[in-house]
């Protein structure tokens, strides 16, 4: 799957989890840029992404996600 396809698939997941229709996904996007992105919604996001892409993260993967770009890299490595 191309990065752009991953972004397309990620967008509705982000909008749903963070309850914000205006979110635009970029590689540099971090939790600081999104109002409702805290340690609680983060785990919901992780769970929704896993279901959406039918993949499983490892706990170590979470530590490596500094921004959405890292997350896309990790998703792409599992597809």
């Amino acid at each position: 799957m191309e990065r752009t396809d991953i972004v397309t698939k990620l967008t509705p997941i982000f909008k749903k989890v963070f309850n914000d229709d205006s979110i635009i996904i970029t590689d540099g996007l971090t939790a600081n840029d999104v109002a409702n992105w805290d340690s609680l919604s983060h785990m919901l996001l992780i769970a929704e992404v896993e279901t959406g892409f039918a993949i499983k993260f490892k706990l170590k993967d979470l530590n490596k996600m500094r921004n959405v770009g890292d997350m896309i890299d990790i998703i792409s490595s599992k597809l």
Binding site: S39, L40, M43, L44, A47, E50
Partner: peptide, 17 residues
Amino acid sequence: VYTPLSFAFRKYRVRGI
């Protein structure tokens, strides 16, 4: 503590958290 735990319980979504 919280991150490993909530990660382990993530399939239960909000209840797990």
